[in-house]
Nucleic acid binder design. Structure first.
Length: 121
DNA sequence: TGTTTGACCACGG
DNA sequence: GCCGTGGCCAAAC
């Protein structure tokens, strides 16, 4: 409280990733590449890196973000490895062998759901 | 300050 | 359809 907070900084693509991730509807999933493409980051890796810091942000459904294969590649970064799958299944997303089944069916693209003109602010 | 790594993706063989 | 490679940007060592 009294000490400087190294975390709090100016808005960056981190905030954009968080903002987009929050907009992902329950029961839907998106990919790192989709977010990177929508935000024109040019580097899908940064999305994962940002989500790694998503513990700093509240209400960020990071479990709805999977890789292009539909695999729950980030499950190991959750409190428990099974938590990500449980959350998805609770929302009606069928998960098998740590990957989303019928991912094309659950896939949600930011540009389609939010529109190209959408702004986090 | 240069190298390595990371919850990735697209492409070519 | 699988495997290797390059690219991408930022943070940690």
């Amino acid at each position: 409280m009294y000490l400087t907070e190294p975390m709090m900084e100016q808005p960056t693509y981190y905030d954009l990733v968080y903002a987009v991730t929050r907009q992902v509807p329950p029961g839907r999933v998106t990919t790192y590449g989709a977010i990177a493409d929508f935000l024109a980051l040019g580097a899908a890796r940064m999305v994962g890196w940002a989500l790694n810091n998503s513990f700093s942000g509240d209400g960020v459904p990071a479990h709805r973000v999977v890789n292009r294969k539909g695999e729950l590649s980030g499950r190991h970064h959750f409190p428990t490895p099974t938590m990500m799958q449980e959350l998805l299944e609770a929302e009606g997303v069928e998960v098998s062998e740590d990957r989303v089944v019928h991912m094309d069916q659950h896939f949600w693209h930011p540009a389609e759901g939010l529109g190209e003109d959408w702004e986090p602010f």
